[in-house]
Design a protein around this nucleic acid. Structure first.
Length: 832
DNA sequence: GAGCACTGC
């Protein structure tokens, strides 16, 4: 630490915090990477020990009335709070008592490093016996390297029942050392006595794998009586799949039997499944089919602190369902103190705390605010590389632009740096990077090299890179903000919250003690909001509102929102649904609205799809385009060196796209992809590479397409809806041979995008028809720089100026025909 | 003539 002080002259004194908010779902995501053949972390600690003090009863669990959590939440402003209480909860911010807390952590560090030496006595008496106890469990951790390789072996192989059982009993010793396992009795007593339980569990507590199993083990295995099942929701698909796989193994059964999962396009659960991991979106789908959720006796909402729109909706829905179903139990699992809100929401349900296992992270702040974040990040990386011991560096930057810039600078800089320090090897990491490029961050490096991963928010929860010991945090992120008054969303660079800063720094403490270098001052840190604003308060809620209408909620404004999106936002969503004819004059859902709610698409796209069938008779082409639109990162951003070539090739393939715009381009690209067929896989992959398209993206497009076709056949009760297409596919007739009815396709889209239109001006800029603001065609569009009478776009982004993305050419007459009312507004604007 | 964070059905 003294060494680092010398080197990091820019930073102030270190302070220490516990890493928080990371959770067991992330742990399994590491596992996923291993399953996919990526190297596991060889440095993964064999000696993981707990740093957290236990409470007096020694179980690691405390059942507290909510007032205790409230006092814990306001920790900063109550320096007189007893030490024992502080240790029960997360320390979001210990800066005001930095010395005190650093001191206590120092003692703990010492105890760990000198494991044979008896700990010096201190004033925290209750800590002492517990620490002794934990030392005996040091070798045990959630996933050791050995565990993971064994896990790989058994997964997917058809092992006899006996060996599955053997494996399960082997795993039992690992399980039984998890903090949650030790508190089993207490937790289960509480769960059995209460309808709602809020559980805060830190990283590595094992809550996501163990608590569902405790509940499962209460159900007799071979009971003839029908027992209601357990559902565990996750915000991410990969987490649901991996947790189910792991838990099935611990339970000694193949996935898809007693334990299974259900995510879009991939379900292993059957009617026999008693414990099901599923995405929150999937459970909401089940709500539509069965509003009583009668298949379940217990619902567990995991990762509730992430506050995704879908989790929030589920909690509101379940709150109402609990009144109707006295036998239903609900467990809300969270990793942060935000649980206080959950408790209040569920009529002051009690909060249980379970400790976790993670390492301390020293914090450093800059002495002055940084004006150029990329420059500051580079300087910090170089300093750190020279002054600190081995360990990889994870740098959080807001977006692709900053990351690419920083990677470029580092690549030029690295060979000229002093040779005493390890060679810096930079890796970018963001979602629109191709999977192959993303995977590079997991490759091990030769000796005397240091990995520097420059990442967006993707590394905060979705991707866990092993080996990271240092985090550099710009304190910035990109946020999509929905402006309901404009009907447009903007993408802004904004400061993160304290909770997010904590989450980011926690990435340095997953395997051993780490350090975080924050590229902002401590006083700026203190000004950050405690929690990240929940998604629901900043996004377009048209889709959630339609779902609630479908579930029979009449008074949307006064529904049991965990957090209301706001009256303006709700009213604009209701208005939009009314305009799409999903709601009638009295605000009730229409038959069309019902069909839209069933389709797994944004209401706008659903409306377009149905219109394309009933009015414009071009359903199958529109399904193809809509499928492309609903897959992320299909058309990738080419790197700056290849950009011109890629654009050239795309234009060559998309003759019609060049004339009519990006929607038609998507159809042409898909047709091209399909023409390769499965015989020419290699060629097809090369083609995708040449055009900077994602093969994985296309595979998803085909899944979505298949799903939507299925839904449309059900909705129209017409089994032969796609018969001619399917015959073509069987006969291997060339794709794209049937000419598209382009006006019909574009008119279909116009019905859903009346407000996303603009009129061309002489200088190649455009004026929107809604409020007359200036907008330009985004450079990523095939129509970039072209002058057209009128355009329609699916997306709007404001950066240096307003940009329309995914642009298509429309005719002025169509605007009059389809969005007459909108044009009048435009005329009024132009007069002003 | 410029550049989009992350999820879900």
């Amino acid at each position: 630490m003294s060494n680092s002080k010398k080197v990091h002259t820019k930073f102030g004194e270190p302070s220490t915090e516990e890493s928080t908010a990371a959770n067991s779902a992330e742990v399994v995501q590491e596992l996923d990477q291993d399953v996919q053949g990526q190297p596991s972390s060889s440095t993964n600690s064999k000696k993981r020990s707990r740093k957290r003090n236990k409470n007096k009863n020694g179980t690691g669990v405390t059942s507290e009335p909510t007032a205790a959590a409230a006092s814990a939440a306001s920790l900063e402003s109550q320096p007189s709070i007893p030490e024992t209480k502080k240790n029960k909860v997360f320390k979001f911010d210990v800066d005001e008592k930095k010395e005190e807390v650093t001191e206590s952590n120092k003692i703990e560090n010492t105890a760990e490093e000198e494991s044979t030496q008896e700990k010096k006595p201190n004033d925290k008496e209750q800590v002492k016996p517990q620490r002794k106890k934990q030392k005996t469990h040091k070798v045990v951790e959630f996933f050791s390297d050995d565990e993971e390789s064994n896990f790989r072996d058994t997964r997917g192989s058809n092992q006899p029942q006996q060996s599955l059982k053997q494996r399960a009993s082997q795993l039992l010793s690992t399980r039984s050392n998890l903090p949650v396992y030790k508190s089993r009795e207490q937790i289960m007593n509480h769960l059995n006595k209460n309808q709602v339980t809020i559980l805060i569990g830190e990283t590595g507590s094992g809550k996501s794998t163990q608590i569902p199993q405790f509940l499962l083990e209460q159900i007799p295995r071979d009971s003839k009586k029908q027992h209601k099942g357990i559902a565990v929701t996750q915000p991410r698909r990969v987490a649901a799949i991996n947790l189910a796989t792991r838990v099935a193994e611990e339970h000694g059964c193949p996935v898809g039997t007693a334990v299974g999962y259900s995510v879009r396009f991939d379900t292993t659960a059957t009617h026999k499944t008693k414990l099901k991991y599923l995405t929150d979106g999937m459970l909401l789908r089940e709500c539509i089919l069965d509003p009583e959720l009668s298949a379940y006796g217990v619902i567990i909402i995991d990762e509730a602190h992430e506050r995704t729109v879908l989790t929030d909706l589920l909690m509101g829905f379940l709150k109402e369902l609990l009144v109707k179903r006295n036998d239903l139990k609900l467990v809300i699992m969270s990793a942060t103190l935000d649980a206080e809100r959950f408790s209040k929401f569920f009529h002051s349900a009690e909060i249980l705390f379970v400790e976790g296992r993670s390492y301390g992270v020293d914090r450093y702040y800059t002495k002055a605010a940084c004006d150029d974040i990329v420059d500051s990040a580079i300087k910090s990386i170089v300093q750190l590389n020279q002054g600190e011991q081995e360990g990889d560096i994870l740098v959080f930057l807001p977006g692709q632009e900053e990351i690419d810039k920083a990677v470029g600078i580092l690549e030029r800089l690295a060979p000229d740096l002093p040779k005493e320090a390890p060679l810096i090897v930079p890796f970018p990491l963001y979602a629109s990077l191709s999977p192959a490029d993303q995977a590079k961050v997991f490759l091990p490096l030769k000796a005397r090299r240091r990995k520097v991963i420059l990442a967006t928010n993707i590394a905060e929860t979705s991707v866990t890179v092993p080996g990271v010991r240092y985090v550099i945090d710009s304190g910035l992120r990109k946020v999509k903000l929905w402006r309901h008054s404009l009907g447009l969303s903007t993408l802004l660079t904004a400061p993160i919250s304290k909770a997010a800063a904590m989450q980011r720094s926690g990435r340095a403490g997953r395997e051993r003690e780490g350090k975080v270098f924050r590229l902002y001052t401590e006083s700026d840190y203190l000004k950050l909001p405690d929690q990240t604003e929940p998604e629901i308060s900043r996004v377009n809620v048209t889709s959630p509102v339609l779902m609630l209408k479908e579930l029979g909620v009449e008074d949307i404004l006064n529904w049991s929102w965990l957090e209301t999106p706001g009256e303006d936002s709700l009213i604009s969503s209701l208005t939009q649904l009314y305009q799409l004819k999903a709601l009638d004059d009295s605000g009730k859902i229409t038959p069309l609205g019902h069909e839209m709610a069933i389709l797994p698409l944004e209401p706008q796209l659903a409306a377009i799809l149905i219109k394309s069938h009933r009015e414009y008779h071009c359903l199958s082409d529109v399904i193809d385009i809509v499928s492309c639109l609903s897959v992320d990162n299909l058309v990738l951003n080419p790197s700056s060196e290849t950009r011109d070539d890629v654009n050239e090739r795309r234009r060559a393939v998309c003759g019609l796209g060049c004339r009519y715009g990006d929607l038609i381009m998507l159809k042409e690209l898909l047709d091209c992809y399909l023409q390769f067929g499965n015989k020419d896989r290699e060629e097809r992959t090369q083609w995708c590479k040449d055009l900077a398209l994602s093969s994985r993206g296309f595979r998803n497009v085909l899944k979505v397409r298949q799903q939507i076709r299925q839904y449309m056949m059900t909705l129209t009760k017409d089994k032969h809806l796609f018969q001619d297409i399917e015959n073509d596919e069987e006969d291997d007739i060339e794709y794209g041979s049937k000419p598209m009815d382009i006006p019909a396709i574009l008119k279909s889209f116009l019905t859903g995008h009346t407000t996303n239109t603009a009129i061309g001006l002489p200088d190649r800029s455009y004026r929107t028809t809604t409020n007359g603001s200036l907008i330009a065609i985004h450079p990523s569009s095939l129509l970039f720089g072209m002058k057209k009478d009128a355009i329609m776009f699916t997306d709007y982004v404001y950066t240096t100026r307003g940009y329309a993305r995914n642009v298509s050419v429309v005719e002025l007459e169509w605007l009059q025909e389809i969005c007459g009312g909108v044009l009048k507004v435009n005329a009024a604007n132009n007069e002003n």
